[in-house]
């Protein structure tokens, strides 16, 4: 086989895998829109749930947002702190590599295990039972490695001469973090959290038996009450619904979930342009 032919085959392989990936995404989107759009109306979006799978999904969406926001807010300092620990204190070296390995392994832990451990700690040991705060904790721990990795990469991408210049001007490590690291990596920090949130938005297993219920509550009023979420809603309907309307509602809820994720991504783009404008001024 000559070189040119090899080259061409390789190109085709790469192109077709890229196309496969993209079309899979398109396929999912089309399927969700196709089957879910008929369910979408004002009552569905802003109504309270009715009997099994009927009525609106407003409180489910609110619950999903609550868990996501809680997890985002909680994981931000954890992830940023450990990213800074790795880049500013450990610095490149054996210990930092070990630390990174730990993060990657945490990222690879099946989410159901996070759920189990969360259930052991909060549900059994602290005896809180099924509650939304447990869900927030579990999701925060679950997405922290993802958020940390993106944050660390964007901090490491800051040109070394910015740090050197700040150091030569006599800024302490903490002052350099404020003056150089945070402003220069702001976009990466936001992206990290949003990627983490996107992961949290789709997570079902870890919160299924620790934080969410299918019915019996609208919105938690205390720290220890459970919460409705779109994920649990979809899962339950997908498993048990037979009525075509109810099935359509499950797809509609899926469409709303995807909508939330896309909204987050657009938000990150807006924030990004704001930040780069500020950095220039």
């Amino acid at each position: 086989m000559n070189r040119q032919l090899k080259d061409r085959i390789l190109r085709w392989v790469l192109a077709s895998s890229a196309i496969a990936g993209c079309s899979l995404l398109a396929l999912i989107l089309i399927a969700v829109i196709w089957r879910g759009h008929s369910a979408i109306n004002i009552d569905f979006l802003f109504g309270a749930p009715g009997n099994f799978g009927e009525g609106g999904i407003f409180y489910q969406a609110l619950g999903t947002l609550l868990l996501m926001l809680g997890a985002g807010v909680l994981s931000f300092p954890i992830a940023l702190g450990s990213a800074l620990f790795q880049t500013e204190i450990l610095r490149p070296g054996k210990t930092a590599e070990l630390f990174q390995l730990l993060m990657y392994s945490l990222n690879a832990v099946p989410t159901i295990l996070f759920g189990l451990i969360g259930f052991m700690v909060f549900g059994v040991w602290l005896d809180i039972g099924v509650s939304w705060t447990t869900g927030v904790f579990i999701l925060a721990v679950m997405i922290s490695p993802t958020v940390q990795t993106v944050m660390r990469q964007s901090i490491e991408a800051i040109p070394e001469h910015y740090q050197e210049t700040a150091r030569a001007l006599g800024l302490s490590p903490w002052q350099r973090v404020r003056a150089v690291v945070l402003p220069q990596s702001a976009y990466g920090l936001v992206t990290g959290v949003l990627l983490g949130l996107a992961r949290a938005a789709g997570e079902t297993a870890a919160i299924m038996f620790t934080a969410t219920v299918f019915s019996g509550i609208l919105f938690p009023e205390t720290w220890t009450e459970p919460v409705l979420t779109l994920q649990t809603h979809i899962l339950t309907l997908a498993q048990e619904a037979v009525d075509p309307n109810t099935v359509a509602n499950a797809w509609g809820a899926g469409l709303v979930l995807i909508g939330i994720v896309f909204f987050l991504i657009s938000l990150s783009l807006v924030i990004r342009s704001r930040l780069s404008l500020e950095a220039d001024s």
């Binding site: 001469h161 910015y162 210049t165 150091r167 001007l169 006599g170 950095a279 001024s281």
Partner: peptide, 22 residues
């Protein structure tokens, strides 16, 4: 005190470096 030392002994690099600010 490294911060104070570097304020008193200023260093200018071979390649100028300005921050993406005003």
């Amino acid at each position: 005190d490294l911060c104070d030392l570097r304020r008193r002994v200023g260093l200018l690099f071979q390649k100028p470096c300005v921050f993406p600010k005003s």
